[in-house]
């Protein structure tokens, strides 16, 4: 049988904001969206092994081996010089994992967590690996599995994953096609199909939306989002995430964060559309 590999940016051993309970979070590398406000843009592109960062690394933590950039995590001090130097704003600190190796890294955390969440990057670009990894999780433990996806791959792509998937959080970047394209460069329709599909399968844990000034931080935008979701099921959990400039690049780094008041007002708008589970980040 062919072994699948996952390209993993990093593993967070605990998170209180990536699904129910305490969860380990695996961040995969690579994304098919280019959101203007991306909070971790270094997870978008893959490393091309050009080697420019090898020279730049002040710690000598990067080396060229057989035409590939390799990273020594013990020497690395996470100064991010490599990411800043990279022509494609990628990261050489990405590791190739087999499903078994990734499980071996997470297994010692089992007693402390409810489950494993996979975020990114975009998980739908590595679904065969994620399916094989979740099979490991389900075989070895009682942990729950969750993906955080942009939904763009469309329903068919997620089918093989369903038997080992407990929950999905889907990003709905905007409730109208125009804003969605403006923000992400991609159309909205496949995302909505994915939300409907995962909900029908009983796997939709939440829909998330970043509230960003000039895009989603207004009443009309929230009306569209909330009406779309309420039309599917008013019980769908909607989580509003406050835009934060931290980690962003380009123009977004200058955008202000929405105020508490603005966030509360948008929650009220969503509730007025009939949604019964509206939450927000801090």
């Amino acid at each position: 049988m062919e072994t699948t590999f996952g390209m993993i940016n990093h593993v967070l051993p605990r998170s209180f904001v990536d699904g129910p309970g305490n969860r380990a979070v695996v961040f995969v590398q690579g994304c098919n969206f280019h959101c203007l406000y991306c909070h971790n843009p270094f997870t978008i592109n893959f490393c091309s092994d050009c080697g420019i960062c090898v020279q730049a690394c002040p710690q000598g933590a990067l080396r060229m081996e057989n035409g590939r950039v390799t990273w020594d995590r013990n020497r690395c001090v996470e100064c991010d010089t490599c990411i800043k130097t990279c022509p494609s704003f990628s990261s050489p600190r990405v590791s190739r994992y087999t499903p078994q190796a990734l499980w071996a890294e997470l297994a010692p955390l089992q007693a402390f967590i409810s489950g494993v969440s996979i975020s990114g990057g975009e998980v739908s670009l590595q679904l065969p690996f994620i399916t094989a990894f979740f099979e490991q999780v389900k075989w070895h433990s009682r942990l729950t599995t969750l993906i955080e996806t942009n939904g763009y791959a469309g329903p068919q792509a997620y089918l093989p994953l369903l038997p080992v998937l407990d929950m999905a959080m889907v990003d709905l970047k905007a409730g109208d096609d125009q804003t969605h394209e403006r923000l992400t460069g991609k159309p909205l329709a496949p995302v909505l199909e994915t939300i409907q599909f995962l909900h029908a399968q009983g796997k939709l844990y939440a829909v998330q939306q970043v509230i960003a000034p000039g895009f989603t931080e207004d009443k009309d935008s929230m009306l569209q989002t909330a009406q779309l979701l309420a039309g599917i099921d008013p019980g769908i959990r909607l989580r509003l995430l406050r835009f934060r400039p931290h980690g962003t690049s380009g123009a977004a780094a200058e955008w202000p964060s929405p105020s508490d008041e603005s966030m509360e007002n948008l929650m009220d708008v969503a509730r007025a559309c009939g949604l019964t589970q509206v939450e927000r980040s801090l």
Partner: peptide
């Protein structure tokens, strides 16, 4: 906002 996460760590 996520007391279940704290209970996971207690367990």
């Amino acid at each position: 906002a996520n007391p279940a996460a704290v209970l996971d760590i207690i367990d």
